[in-house]
Amino acid sequence: MYICPMYTSELIKGTLKTIILNLLKERGRMYGYEITQTVKDMTAGKIQITEGALYPTLHALEKNGELATEEEYIGKRVRKYYTITEQGTQTATEKVNEFVDFIRTMKFLLDIEPRVSNA
């Protein structure tokens, strides 16, 4: 709904938490704008997390205890850095495993033959 990538929003709806948790698991401390830019760069613009989806999800993950925050003053404004907690790391692993399983099931269901990559 809020993600406007090259992929349709229906396709990647529900993976936002997995993306954020896994990114923070790998990169450590990040702030909102940095997260959106990193995802955009990593996927060559194919997945662009919009701010409208990012911040509600970050707040929910923080409330659930999956993310911790640190605040830093940049001049007059406050910057909130997000880090993953132990519980968040566990959730990230579970979500990635679930997603891998989902892809396998979809491959089988849609009878997709893996293509030879151009890379």
Partner: peptide, 22 residues
């Protein structure tokens, strides 16, 4: 307008919704 579909308040509503979801 990057931040919303209709109005900025959507972010507030969406956050509240996710916070009370549990």
């Amino acid at each position: 307008p990057r931040f919303f579909k209709k109005e900025l308040k959507e972010l507030q509503v969406e956050t509240e919704k996710l916070l009370t979801f549990k």
